[in-house]
């Protein structure tokens, strides 16, 4: 690893100022699970490393029945996995975290880092986008909020400006009759990065048969997490039917843009998207029908 100057701001404002001062030569450091690898391999050699872990405002998991769930950027994967509050309100997040990487990465890696690093082979973004999460971003001129979907631009590229910091993730309280299913598919060992990850979320009308909102969010099959909008449009406003799910899954399979790599060929991944959307949808539907305030 090349040497760098190590900075430890004590507030978000101070961190933003450091980032503005040093521009592209600086990089935010939190859990370091991803950044340390590219720094050791020499792909990325920042002159200034801005460790934000000493900033108390960025920690903590909060829940408000009206506002929803707020995750500080420094919340770790392991905290999501083991937090009783998460297990009670968003058990889907705890369940998926059990399968993220390994215990050491979950102890160190943070939610904010996972999102802001924009690694395409990861799990959280699909689930959070399906739940219509937004993020809070702090900059030298103040805060702004945007949908999480808007964060992702390309492989490892986000819409954050160099002097901005992702400070919080907000997950709104799910509307009544909402269900979500996420299937993480790994084509090699279970501790490998996912080959693909498919989130399907439904919110139903009061008849418990008609789909009011559908989200089909695909991960690892495009430079960014991808909403299969044609698949969603096909499902929304109509009765839930097996045949329609099959058609939507076929749309999703065409909408994604996977590349062939060691985890599978393009054709294989497209086929697995079709299979996993078909598999996740009925589970999401049944969960929505049985909704009791948690997803």
């Amino acid at each position: 690893m090349k040497n760098f100057e190590y900075l430890e701001p004590r507030s978000v404002q101070e961190a933003c100022q450091l980032l503005r001062q040093h521009g592209e030569e600086a990089r935010i450091f939190a859990g370091g699970t991803s950044l340390s690898i590219v720094m050791k391999q020499g792909f990325f050699q920042p002159k200034y490393l801005v460790n934000i872990k000493k900033i108390p405002d960025l920690t903590g998991i909060r829940w408000d029945p009206k506002r929803g769930l707020t995750l500080g950027a420094l919340v770790t994967h392991r905290e999501l996995e083991t937090s009783p509050l998460i297990q009670e309100t968003f058990p889907i997040l705890s369940q998926i975290e059990e399968d993220v990487a390994n215990i050491r990465v979950r102890v160190m890696g943070t939610v904010g880092g996972n999102l802001a690093y924009a690694e395409p082979l990861t799990d959280l973004p699909q689930i959070l986008i399906a739940l219509e999460a937004s993020i809070r971003v702090a900059g030298p001129d103040g805060d702004r909020t945007m949908s999480l979907e808007e964060l992702f631009v390309d492989y490892y590229e986000t819409s954050l400006r160099p002097d901005e910091i992702l400070t919080e993730v907000l997950v709104p309280t799910p509307p009544p009759r909402t269900g979500i299913e996420y299937i993480r598919f790994s084509s090699s060992s279970v501790i490998d990065k996912p080959c693909l990850g498919t989130a399907v979320r439904f919110t139903l009308e009061e008849d418990l048969e008609t789909v009011r909102t559908a989200r089909v969010v695909l991960g690892c099959v495009a430079p960014t997490p991808l909403r299969a909008r044609q698949a969603e449009a096909l499902l929304e406003g109509k009765r839930y039917e097996v045949q329609r799910v099959k058609e939507a899954a076929a749309f999703a399979s065409r909408e994604c843009k996977p590349v062939s790599d060691l985890r599978g060929s393009e054709a294989y991944k497209r086929e697995m998207v079709r299979v996993l959307v078909t598999r996740a949808a009925p589970r999401a539907f049944e969960k929505a029908r049985a909704f009791r305030g948690q997803v």
Binding site: Y6, F29, G32, T33, S36, I37, K40, L49, N51, K53, R78, I103, R104, V105, V107, M108
Partner: peptide, 13 residues
């Protein structure tokens, strides 16, 4: 008390 990969943990941190 928590397990970490010390190969990727900055000493200054």
């Amino acid at each position: 008390g928590k397990p970490v990969s010390s190969c990727s943990f900055l000493a200054v941190d």
